Amino acid sequence: MRKIKVAVIAHGLGMSRGYSGEGNIYKSFFEMLEERKIDYVTISFAKPYDTSIPSIYTLPFHLPKLDKYQRLLTYYTAKKVKPDLYLNASGVPIPLSEIAPHVIYAGAPSIANLPSKYTRSLFWKLYLLPFRLVINKIKDEAKKAKIIANSRYSAKAIAEVYEINEPKVIYPPVDIEYFQRAYSEEKRENFFVTIGRIERGKMLENSIFLAAKSGVKGIIIGSLNEKDYLNKLIKLKRELNADVEILTDLSREELLKVLSRAKIYFHATIGEHFGIPVIEAMASGVIPIVPKESGAYEVVPEFSYSDIEEAVILLKSLLEKENIELRREMRNRALNFSKENFKRNIFNEISSIIF
């Protein structure tokens, strides 16, 4: 068997053809390794959709469900190889440190006591039961592995759940160059935009509540994951007489066109570990309003809300002017989150292990 320098744990490759926020972490890892001519292989539980990358997997078919379980089950694939380094983009401390050094890029653990769909219903609490059954093994691995968090918000939750010191933070990569194409200092329209997958965990009803209480038009943009949730949102906006458009599965070019017109971005997901659309909006010159209870608070604490009433006040205030200088500042602040910065920072963390 050929010597493997780096095994990239990327469970989601077997779940979807597209690349979500986490999928963009995978791509950035692959680019980082390829640019430095470092041999690597990807590790997933189910068969990847993308056959162009070197991969090892266990299931001979794709499995688009059971995301959290696949993060654990990837262990059975990973232990088949002995690389110089496991670079884990799936975020869970599966026990690999006894085989090779293990570096984990992680958001807050799903069993953390943070607002999310996993704390909102009995169904989701039962869904996460296997994690609680193996929590001691996960904690042990967290103490042995090197964990890097995607925000200070996540770092605090990681430290609390795994009973370790707060890990180092490296913010995730954002395609700043692409979204800057929507930036201009021309007059913009008085509406807000929200970006997020159409699924319950994204709490998109908050955008409808904001539109209803403020009287300001909102546009929700997202890939359609849950049709019944979309129907619920449509019903809610009718009941509240809220001026909200819901646009599903837009192309990136269509998304840019909307961002180029909007004045405000509203992040609806309370408890989000980071929130990449916040940075995409900022790069586009759109001023964000974000939950205090989220990783995005670290980026724009001056425009954060605790409840919808507070968000309404912020929204109306920011719509009063064109805020050219503020839009410029948001764009400049977004530059810190470039993919190049991310790849350089991650490489600095792993280089001493593989060389």
Rank of each mutant, 00 (worst) to 15 (best):
V290L: 09
A283R: 08
R328E: 15
R328Y: 07
S284M: 07
S317E: 15
E322P: 10
I289A: 12
I289N: 13
K292I: 09
K316G: 04
E325S: 14
K316Q: 06
E310A: 13
V278N: 01
P291I: 05
I308T: 09
S317P: 12
E293Q: 11
V290N: 05
I287S: 12
E322L: 05
I324C: 09
A281W: 03
E320N: 12
K321E: 15
M282V: 09
V299K: 02
L315S: 15
S317T: 15
G285V: 11
D307Q: 00
V286D: 13
V312I: 08
E309V: 03
L315K: 13
E322H: 05
E322I: 01
E309L: 06
G295W: 03
R328Q: 14
L314T: 10
V299N: 03
M282F: 05
R327F: 08
K292G: 03
I287F: 04
L315C: 15
V290S: 08
E280R: 05
V278S: 03
E322M: 06
E302A: 05
V286W: 11
A296L: 04
P301L: 15
E320H: 09
I308Y: 00
M282H: 08
R327Q: 13
A281N: 08
I313Y: 03
S317N: 15
P301M: 15
A311P: 01
F303E: 14
K316D: 03
I308L: 02
S306A: 06
E322N: 12
E302S: 11
L326F: 00
V300Q: 10
I289P: 14
E329I: 07
L319V: 08
V290Y: 02
E293D: 13
S304Y: 00
I287A: 09
M330L: 10
S284I: 07
Y305G: 12
A296Q: 04
V299G: 03
I308S: 02
S294Y: 02
S284A: 15
M330Y: 01
Y305A: 13
S284C: 06
L314I: 10
M330H: 05
S304V: 06
I289G: 13
E309C: 02
N323L: 08
N323K: 10
V286Y: 11
I308E: 01
M330G: 04
L319R: 07
K316C: 02
E302T: 10
K292W: 01
E302K: 10
E320L: 11
S306E: 12
G285S: 13
M282C: 10
V286R: 06
A311C: 07
E293R: 08
G295A: 04
K316L: 11
Y297K: 03
E309A: 10
V278A: 04
S284W: 08
R328T: 12
E280H: 09
E325H: 06
K321I: 02
F303G: 15
L315F: 07
V300L: 11
D307W: 00
E309I: 05
I313K: 14
A296G: 09
A311L: 07
L319N: 09
R327P: 15
P288L: 14
E298Y: 01
S294M: 02
R328A: 13
A281C: 12
E310S: 14
